[in-house]
Amino acid sequence: MDETGKELVLALYDYQEKSPREVTMKKGDILTLLNSTNKDWWKVEVKITVNGKTYERQGAVPAAYVKKL
């Protein structure tokens, strides 16, 4: 869990989004888990830093590609 009490997951593999509802992640990324009720796809929040600014993006990733921490 992070400092706000939200559950975290670890990306076990790289994943490139294939639709606007998904998010890209790299192996080793730590993501915030938002919903894991679907056994195949979990909704997560990814933090992306671009030019020193951090953005948050929500989307789905394959459940088999992440592990709860």
Rank of each mutant, 00 (worst) to 15 (best):
A11L: 04
K18V: 08
Y15T: 00
K68T: 06
V66K: 01
R57K: 13
P62A: 03
T54R: 06
S19F: 05
K47F: 08
L33T: 00
E45L: 14
N38P: 04
E22C: 06
P62I: 06
G59D: 00
L10H: 02
D29H: 04
N51C: 10
W41T: 03
T54Y: 07
T4C: 15
V61N: 02
A11K: 02
D14I: 05
K27G: 04
V44W: 01
Y65G: 07
S19L: 06
G28R: 02
N38Q: 09
S19R: 06
W41D: 00
A64P: 06
V66R: 00
L69I: 13
S19E: 06
Y55L: 11
K6G: 11
M1R: 13
G52M: 04
I48C: 13
G59P: 00
S36V: 07
K68V: 11
W41K: 00
Y13T: 08
V44S: 00
K18M: 10
K43Y: 15
V66G: 01
V23R: 02
K67V: 15
E56D: 11
V50C: 11
L34F: 03
A60R: 14
K6D: 09
S19W: 05
A11W: 04
Y15A: 02
P20G: 09
W42K: 00
A11H: 02
Y65M: 14
Q16V: 14
R21E: 14
R21I: 10
L10C: 12
L33R: 00
M25V: 09
K26Y: 09
R21M: 14
V66W: 03
Y55T: 11
V44A: 01
L10E: 11
G52Y: 03
V50P: 00
D14A: 05
A60C: 15
L34W: 03
T49G: 05
E17R: 14
T4P: 13
W42P: 00
K26V: 08
D14K: 02
Q16I: 14
E7G: 10
V9Q: 00
L8N: 05
K47V: 12
I48G: 04
K53E: 12
N35D: 15
Y15S: 00
V44Q: 00
E17T: 07
E22W: 03
P62S: 03
E3R: 12
T37P: 03
L33H: 00
L33Q: 01
L33G: 00
L12F: 02
T24N: 04
V66F: 04
N35V: 06
Y13C: 15
K53G: 08
Y55C: 11
E7Y: 10
M1E: 13
Y55S: 10
N38D: 15
T24P: 06
S36Q: 11
